[in-house]
Amino acid sequence: MKTPLIPWLSVSLPFLLSCCATSHDNYADRNQLVTDFYAHVEAINDVEFESQVGESMAVWGLWGALENAHGNSADMLVGATVSAFFGGLITALSEGPRYGYEYHLLAVDGDSVIVVLDYFPAEEGQCVRVRMANSVSVKATDAGFCYSDDEY
């Protein structure tokens, strides 16, 4: 007897997709101290990250020139130019954005924390949840979490 595909998929697909929808901790967070706290955003400053594109272009350009050293000077020049371009392009793509944000946070317990991020999760004065483990994540949250028990 041949089983139709549509009924079989309609029954099994929810079970197969439910394993993808579970929320577990990040695999990189194992065997580490994970800290969660809530804080007010006091100030936000723009920062510029260092870039390695120039150095990468120089190294790849030298490699391209040496790789084409057996030809004439035009081969060396073209090899250096093409290698420098693609080396710089790959480095720029792998580095990601060059600009970020420095968040000055005031935690609920009174601690002052500075976090540098490459994304913009919240505005000044908002309440955020900070999770520090393998990396730092900051997410805007309800303002009720930023009031300590003493303020009620």
Score class of each variant (00 low, 15 high):
Val108Glu: 05
Val41Trp: 15
Gln32Ala: 05
Arg131Ala: 06
Ala28Arg: 08
Val11Ser: 14
Phe49Leu: 10
Ala39Ile: 01
Val116Pro: 07
Met132Pro: 01
Gln126Ser: 12
Leu16Glu: 06
Gly87Glu: 01
Val116Phe: 08
Gly88Asn: 02
Trp60Asp: 01
Thr35Cys: 02
Asn134Asp: 12
Ala28Asp: 10
Trp60Arg: 00
Lys2Leu: 08
Val136Glu: 02
Leu9Val: 01
Thr141Trp: 03
Pro4Gly: 13
Phe49Asp: 08
Leu89Tyr: 15
Asn134Phe: 10
Phe120Val: 03
Asn68Ile: 03
Glu50Cys: 00
Val78Trp: 03
Ser56Thr: 00
Asn68Met: 06
Phe37Arg: 03
Tyr38Ile: 00
Val78Ser: 11
Leu66Ser: 06
Phe86Met: 04
Ser73Asn: 00
Gln32Phe: 08
Asp46Val: 05
Phe15Val: 08
Lys2Gly: 03
Cys20Asp: 05
Ser18Lys: 11
Asn45Phe: 10
Asn68Lys: 01
Arg98Lys: 07
Ala39Asp: 05
Cys20Pro: 09
Leu93Thr: 05
Lys139Gly: 06
Asp142Phe: 07
Asp75Gln: 02
Pro4Ser: 15
Asn45Glu: 15
Glu151Trp: 13
Ser137Thr: 08
Ser94Ala: 06
Cys19Pro: 10
Trp8Thr: 09
Ile44Thr: 04
Asn31Trp: 10
Gln32Pro: 02
Met76Gly: 02
Ala65Met: 11
Ser12Trp: 15
Asp46Gly: 11
Leu106Asn: 06
Ser112Tyr: 14
Asp111Arg: 14
Ile114Thr: 14
Gly110Thr: 10
Ala43Asn: 12
Cys146Ala: 00
Gln126Tyr: 03
Ala122Lys: 01
Leu33Asp: 12
Val136Asn: 05
Leu77Thr: 13
Val82Gln: 01
Phe86Tyr: 11
Ser135Gln: 15
Glu55Gly: 11
Trp60Thr: 12
Leu117Glu: 09
Gln52Ala: 06
Cys20Phe: 15
Cys19Asn: 09
Leu5Asp: 05
Ala80Phe: 03
Gly125Leu: 07
Ala69Asn: 02
Asp25Lys: 13
Lys2Cys: 02
Phe85Trp: 03
Ser51Ala: 03
Met1Glu: 11
Phe120Met: 13
Ala21Val: 09
Pro121Lys: 02
Ala143Val: 11
Trp60Gly: 02
Asn26Gln: 07
Gln126Pro: 04
Lys139Phe: 10
Met132His: 14
Ser137Lys: 14
Val53Thr: 10
Asp25Tyr: 09
Trp8Met: 11
Ile114Asp: 14
Glu123Thr: 08
Arg131Met: 07
Leu89Cys: 06
Ala84Asp: 04
Asp142Thr: 08
Ile6Arg: 15
Ala74His: 07
Leu93Ser: 13
His70Val: 09
Gly71Gln: 00
Ser83Leu: 04
Ser83Gly: 05
Val113Tyr: 13
Tyr152Thr: 09
Val53Lys: 13
Pro7Ile: 01
Glu124Ala: 14
Val47Thr: 00
Leu106Ile: 00
Glu55Ala: 09
Gln32Lys: 08
Leu5Trp: 14
Leu93Glu: 07
His70Ala: 13
